[in-house]
Amino acid sequence: MLEIKNISKTFEKGTVNEHVAIKDMSLNLKDGEFITIVGSNGAGKSTLFNAICGSFMVDGGHIILDNEEITYKTEHARAKMIGRVFQDPMKGTAPNMTIEENLALAYTRASKHSTPFSRAITKKSVKFFRENLARYNMGIEDRMKTKIGLLSGGQRQVVTLLMCTLSIPKLLLLDEHTAALDPATAERVMEITKQIVDENNITTMMITHNLNQSLTTGTRTIMLDGGEIMLDLSGRERDEMTMDDLIKMYSAKKQKQFDNDRILLSR
């Protein structure tokens, strides 16, 4: 489904600020697979997502999505195939546009049909949007003409999730999409995320700083460090893994203690 072959990226190459962000990384995802990604700050998690989305061109290697080479496609072209939800609830939407306008814009952009945005907001489409929102009990299906910037963080993330999945993407990227929410709201948004992904069998990658979440969500866990994949866990090995086991495995492989406070405090 997704094939990442030996990609690399170095920023500010040849300067005193040179930073190797991704080192000869390879990764394969099967259709419908749900991978969680964990790692310290600077490990390369968001950089990997940016490489997949086309926020920059990689220095080398190939990115293939659903048997299509996308390595040199523009970010705009990839957006029709890839959905992404960011940590910041203010990203990924137009805050001064209404809920129905944001949903119509996303649906038009991802649709295979070139329907003009001006014709995307119809009674039929708004009914479709409302019915989908109502399923998640977040109290927003009757606020279709409310500007999205006036919603709570959790409500906004649910709208963003729906924007990314009304037209099923080939790949869904979740960039710590519950990290900025209070615990109860984060749990509810995570439940809705799992529901959407499971019902539509969406191939998904999710960055998280929560070690327990990384082992209990989805089907596979990878740990990044210094732009490389340090650990890749699935099946029975992952099922039997505890958070302490994961930290010990990392320490044994790196020959140093795992010292990321944010991750350790999430245990």
Results as ranks from 00 to 15, higher is better:
residue 3 E to G: 03
residue 5 K to H: 07
residue 7 I to W: 11
residue 7 I to M: 12
residue 8 S to C: 12
residue 12 E to Q: 14
residue 14 G to L: 04
residue 19 H to A: 14
residue 20 V to W: 09
residue 28 N to Q: 13
residue 29 L to F: 04
residue 32 G to V: 04
residue 35 I to D: 02
residue 38 V to M: 13
residue 40 S to P: 00
residue 49 F to T: 07
residue 50 N to K: 15
residue 58 V to P: 06
residue 62 H to Q: 13
residue 64 I to S: 06
residue 66 D to T: 02
residue 67 N to M: 07
residue 71 T to M: 07
residue 79 A to L: 10
residue 83 G to M: 01
residue 88 D to M: 10
residue 92 G to L: 13
residue 96 N to S: 14
residue 97 M to H: 09
residue 99 I to P: 02
residue 100 E to Y: 07
residue 101 E to M: 08
residue 104 A to C: 10
residue 108 T to L: 04
residue 113 H to E: 11
residue 114 S to L: 12
residue 127 K to A: 14
residue 128 F to Q: 07
residue 132 N to A: 06
residue 133 L to P: 03
residue 135 R to Q: 13
residue 138 M to H: 10
residue 138 M to T: 04
residue 141 E to L: 13
residue 142 D to W: 04
residue 143 R to H: 12
residue 146 T to E: 10
residue 147 K to N: 15
residue 147 K to Q: 14
residue 151 L to F: 08
residue 151 L to Q: 03
residue 152 S to I: 08
residue 159 V to D: 07
residue 160 T to F: 01
residue 160 T to E: 06
residue 162 L to A: 05
residue 162 L to C: 06
residue 164 C to T: 02
residue 167 S to A: 08
residue 170 K to N: 12
residue 171 L to S: 09
residue 173 L to S: 10
residue 180 A to W: 06
residue 182 D to K: 15
residue 184 A to I: 13
residue 186 A to C: 05
residue 188 R to P: 00
residue 190 M to C: 04
residue 192 I to W: 03
residue 193 T to G: 01
residue 194 K to P: 01
residue 197 V to N: 00
residue 200 N to A: 08
residue 203 T to A: 02
residue 205 M to G: 05
residue 205 M to V: 11
residue 207 I to L: 03
residue 209 H to I: 00
residue 213 Q to A: 09
residue 215 L to G: 01
residue 215 L to C: 05
residue 218 G to C: 06
residue 219 T to A: 03
residue 220 R to L: 10
residue 220 R to A: 11
residue 224 L to N: 07
residue 225 D to N: 15
residue 228 E to K: 15
residue 229 I to H: 11
residue 233 L to P: 00
residue 235 G to D: 03
residue 240 E to P: 09
residue 241 M to K: 14
residue 242 T to K: 10
residue 245 D to C: 08
residue 245 D to G: 13
residue 246 L to V: 09
residue 253 K to M: 09
residue 254 K to R: 15
residue 255 Q to V: 04
residue 262 R to V: 00
residue 266 S to F: 06
residue 266 S to N: 08
